[in-house]
Amino acid sequence: MSTFTDIVVEKHGHVALIEIRRPPLNFFDISLIGQIATALDQIDADPDYRAVVLAAQGKAFCAGANFGTPEPGDKDPAVQLGKINHLYQEAVRIFRNKKPIVAAVQGAAIGGGLGLAVSADFRVTCPEARFAANFTRLGFHPGFGLTVTLPELIGKNNAELMFYTSRRVIGEDALRMGLANVLVPQDQVRAEALKLASEIAENSPLGLISTRATMRAGLADRVAAQTDHELAEQTTLRATEDFKEGVKATEERRVPNFKGR
């Protein structure tokens, strides 16, 4: 297994545990998503692994992108993410992995962090967790393939509700709408995720890979096509005053004053 800078991979029987280590909020960028994708490629190549748990240190699972305040003279708050098309190429690699993934969501999964959680097959969470597709609150367009994956998971109308309101969905409501599969106390999230992944790993590895390929047939291709559209919309909105206001308002913890331009 490769040496990574922002994740570690541990072996738990036939289960690989990938832990994100950018606490406390575990903001993502191209490097982090690429490291997760590379770890999954290596897990796919190792027949001793049959399932994966994706977990994180800190109080958040992944709080999304850290837009923050742009450097002086920089007009784009998203510039530090790097080229978003490259980011989405790395994200599609995650969707192409072959083995079942259980996400251990012990805290916030926001924006692209929600996209990362939804890329997994199952989510174990807790009452303290918060799930949010907060893109419109930023004056932005959803990304990370969420306009494909979220409606398929929770239904079109529930996805529209999350997209249009940017509201935070608590753990109990996530379970109710199908966004989460298991709800346990916060200190039990990782153990429960490992338990579920171990239950999966007791089964035939060839049967698992074959069945999962059938169940997720075409998903990675749909995500790849949709991220092209998402990127085009995001590129347009990155140049607007509303996007800058949304990022600034979020940083200042206030309601944004959007002008529609």
Rank of each mutant, 00 (worst) to 15 (best):
M1K: 02
T3I: 07
F4N: 01
T5G: 02
D6K: 11
I7M: 08
V9M: 08
H12P: 02
G13A: 04
H14G: 02
H14F: 11
R22A: 11
P23C: 07
L25W: 13
L25D: 15
N26W: 12
N26G: 09
F28S: 07
S31G: 07
L32T: 04
Q35A: 01
T38G: 00
A39Y: 08
A45P: 02
V52W: 09
L54N: 06
A55S: 15
A56R: 01
A56M: 03
A65I: 10
F67A: 11
G68P: 05
P70C: 03
P77C: 02
P77A: 01
P77G: 01
V79Y: 05
L81W: 01
N85A: 12
N85E: 15
L87K: 06
Y88T: 05
R93P: 08
R93D: 11
R93Q: 15
R96P: 14
K99R: 15
K99P: 11
K99L: 14
P100A: 04
V105G: 00
G113H: 08
L114Q: 07
L114V: 10
A117I: 06
A120R: 07
A120Y: 14
R123A: 15
R123G: 03
V124F: 10
V124Q: 07
T125E: 04
C126D: 00
R130H: 05
F131D: 02
A133Y: 02
R137P: 00
G139F: 11
P142L: 04
G145I: 04
V148F: 07
G155T: 00
A159N: 05
L161T: 08
M162P: 06
M162I: 12
Y164C: 02
Y164F: 13
T165P: 09
R168Q: 15
R168H: 11
G171Q: 06
L179Q: 05
N181F: 03
N181M: 01
V182I: 15
E192Y: 05
A193V: 09
K195A: 15
E199A: 14
A201S: 14
N203S: 13
N203K: 12
L206K: 12
L206S: 13
G207L: 08
S210R: 14
M215P: 01
R222Q: 14
V223F: 10
A224S: 13
H229V: 15
L237Q: 05
T240Q: 05
G246H: 08
G246N: 09
K248D: 10
A249N: 07
A249K: 10
T250C: 04
T250R: 13
E252W: 00
V255F: 08
